[in-house]
Nucleic acid binder design. Structure first.
Lengths: 207, 207
DNA sequence: GCATCGATATATCGAGGCGATATATCGTGG
DNA sequence: CCACGATATATCGCCTCGATATATCGATGC
């Protein structure tokens, strides 16, 4: 599931794993926790799939030819350290053309309509999407929430008899119902704003 | 994570896996999906740990002594089938004393304060808890939500500069902020109600 | 009788998520 | 000069979950 946000961030600029995680935490920390146990395997999958590639560290692909002597190498290392306060050797990742396609595919995918996390992730990077695809994304979400609301309502009503069902469970369901209503209202607001934007084309958003 | 709701349901009455799933779906379907791929392994874990045990199918542990002949056995099976419309041989699970302890331990556990799912699960079965422990559970949740709210606020404010941060991401964070506020208000309502209840002891909830 | 079908029921597999943990390296301050 | 915390990459084991396999039961139709 991390593929999408990884590609989304790398689409803006190349980065190494650690920074990727920091960015993910700060942008999506509220909605999804990210651990290295997910991040690094995801990076390897993406690399294997040819969606991202490793670029040479900071100094660029400058050759720094072998001196043939150990001493020469350590001296070169010392120079490097002085010139750039380069941290531990880090692997910087860059998105490929193939990766950009993969990103678009993930953003357009419609399977996971019922996954809060997946939607939040897509929303965070949906600016890379064509307006019509973005609208489709929002509407799929709206439809799913509508269905969920009906389901929750049904389950709430099914509390047949007087004292049926636990008080705490009932409260939980009522809160869930309310939260779903809010989610729905939010999506509908997003859709309305989206219509306005596409109504006056050429009004690109800055930054 | 399914251990808790499984034990919670079995604490009320013995059940077999399929029915367990139906009950889990209807009670918690809104908050957590349950799949067999999680359910059956969880049941095996619980059985290995001695928290639950399999009881003999419907007919009870009635001996039905071996007849010593194949024919006798099949005849006995035919009788069983006629007497009780028993479905496919199903494994009915029952909670053990050890399991009741495990359940209480899981309900009291404080590690997972920041897990929506875990809290919903606990809430659904917190009636098995002593009032003070239930209150502690609620307060832990409230404290965690308070911290989360502060974090989200911080992240929202950190959008330094004028046009910083994507519009959609910003909307996502604002919605998250609002949702967290609602969650917090809900918990505080629960806590207030809880205080009232413990204020007038002897007022047990029916059903 | 019996073929067939949908609901009931148990179980496993592989891919992936995640917390815990290991292992380096760098910058800082004692 | 070295201890320590932040930076950085990586793996392990347990768990979740969707997909799938496999039985069995009850009902329906012929």
């Amino acid at each position: 599931m991390l593929e999408l946000p990884i590609l989304g961030l790398l689409h803006e600029e190349p980065m190494h794993g650690y920074e990727l995680k920091k960015r993910l935490d700060e942008t999506l920390g509220a909605v999804t926790g990210v651990s290295y146990g997910s991040l690094y395997p995801a990076l390897r999958r993406l690399e294997r799939a040819g969606a991202i590639e490793v670029v040479e560290p900071d100094g660029g692909p400058s050759p720094i030819p072998m001196t043939g002597s150990i001493g020469g190498e350590t001296a070169a290392a010392r120079v490097r350290r002085v010139l750039t306060p380069s941290r531990r050797k880090r692997k910087e990742y860059r998105i490929t053309d193939r990766g950009a396609d993969v990103l678009e595919g993930l953003l357009k995918a419609s399977e996971d309509a019922g996954d809060e996390r997946a939607f939040a992730l897509k929303l965070a990077f949906c600016r890379h999407l064509a307006p019509e695809d973005r609208m489709a994304l929002f509407e799929r979400r709206r439809d799913w929430l509508t269905q969920k609301l009906a389901r929750v309502r049904g389950a709430l009503g099914a509390g047949a008899g007087p004292g049926r069902r636990d008080l705490y469970t009932r409260s939980l369901m009522e809160h869930d119902d309310e939260a779903t209503e809010r989610d729905l209202a939010w999506i509908e607001r997003l859709i309305a704003e989206e219509r306005q934007i596409s109504g006056q084309p050429g009004a690109e958003q800055p930054a």
